[in-house]
């Protein structure tokens, strides 16, 4: 008998070709329009921060994989996406050591301590940002970050202005300016149009779940509309909330992170809506000007609780007797 060595494995013998690398590559591509706009808008320092954030996040991944003797999964690009998202949400003038500390918290405390890819209960980037917000709020203050810049638009962070000056500040921000990125904010989180285009690309590719995005945006619009209708003098209109701060990047890129979001349809709708609802509550009633980070961390927390709402499996609860 000839002994040709054959590959033996179990069914199915086909695969649709999807992989973690494809997923993260598509996230990366989808983030590019907003990130490129940030570089164009805030100049070389923005490029420096983005590059440092992505590369340091990857470096932390390599170090942690080596320390924990895990398979090196750097080529899956997950850390690159975490780092890039981190860089896109911080000001272009952030000092290098804060960026590196932030990505350390994101990759190591946000992801690796929970067991690495797939184990993180929260979005790693948000863990990093939340801890930075608590520790060094000054470095995340967009008003002071860009004092040396000359802009041809109001160089005030819209949500901070809303918080401190009330609705009178709204006159200086048009929805069009907010959509086209004529505002100060994180490097890649100001260009609303780019985020929407990238986000829709991700949804069409099947890497972001439209249920979460749609219900997240619905949560923001519905809650903000309720506040606005009841007290138009005190609260900002819904579109302002949708287009300012981290709202869009949160809806299209942060809330949809796989490991920390639900997979069943009804839980996805609840999860997204709750996120949008919480953002508006924080902004309108809470003390923080932008509630996106906290709101998404909060819905990450409730994800396991709501994701048990699921359809009955085949044959469960039916009797043929």
């Amino acid at each position: 008998m000839t002994n040709t060595k054959l590959i033996v494995s179990h069914a199915p013998f086909w695969h649709n070709g999807d992989s973690l690398f494809q997923q993260n590559l598509n996230f990366f591509i989808a983030l590019l329009p907003a990130a490129l706009f940030g570089i164009f808008h805030f100049g070389a320092p923005a490029l420096g921060v983005l590059a440092l954030a992505a590369s340091s996040a990857m470096l932390w991944e390599v170090i942690m994989s080596a320390l924990s003797k895990k398979k090196m999964a750097i080529a899956d690009m997950e850390s690159a996406v975490i780092g890039l998202l981190f860089g896109m949400m911080v000001p272009a003038t952030m000092p290098w050591w804060v960026v590196i500390t932030g990505t350390f918290i994101a990759v190591v405390l946000g992801k690796f301590v929970f067991g690495g890819t797939g184990g993180n209960p929260f979005h790693p980037t948000l863990v990093g940002l939340a801890i930075l917000t608590m520790s060094w709020p000054a470095f995340l203050d967009f008003d002071t970050a860009y004092v040396s810049y000359q802009f041809d638009f109001t160089a005030l962070a819209p949500l901070v202005a809303l918080k401190s000056q009330g609705t009178s500040a709204l006159a200086s921000f048009s929805n069009y300016d907010l959509l086209m990125g004529n505002e100060v904010g994180g490097i890649g989180s100001t260009f609303g149009l780019g985020i929407i285009i990238g986000g829709i690309y991700l949804i069409l590719k099947g890497y972001a779940r439209w249920e979460i995005v749609a219900s997240f945006i619905a949560g923001i619009l519905i809650t903000a509309t309720l506040f606005f209708v009841l007290h138009p003098d005190t609260y900002a209109p819904p579109l302002f909330h949708l287009l300012s701060g981290y709202t869009l990047i949160g809806a299209f890129f942060l809330a949809v992170e796989n490991s920390s979001s639900p997979v069943n349809r009804i839980p996805m709708l609840i999860y997204g809506f709750l996120g949008g609802f919480m953002i508006i509550l924080v902004r309108n009633i809470g003390v923080y000007p932008d509630g996106t980070i906290l709101a998404i961390l909060l819905i990450n927390l409730v994800n396991p609780l709501i994701d048990i709402i699921r359809p009955k499996a085949l044959g469960k609860g039916v009797s043929n007797a």
Binding site: G118, G119, V263
Partner: peptide
């Protein structure tokens, strides 16, 4: 064309849940 199988942990993307004809989580 033999597809590669890996020992990754589940990343919770939910593709399997949505395609399962028996609604298994």
């Amino acid at each position: 064309v033999v597809p590669e199988l890996l020992d990754n942990a589940c990343v919770n993307c939910g593709e399997c849940v949505r395609i399962c004809p028996a609604n298994i989580p």
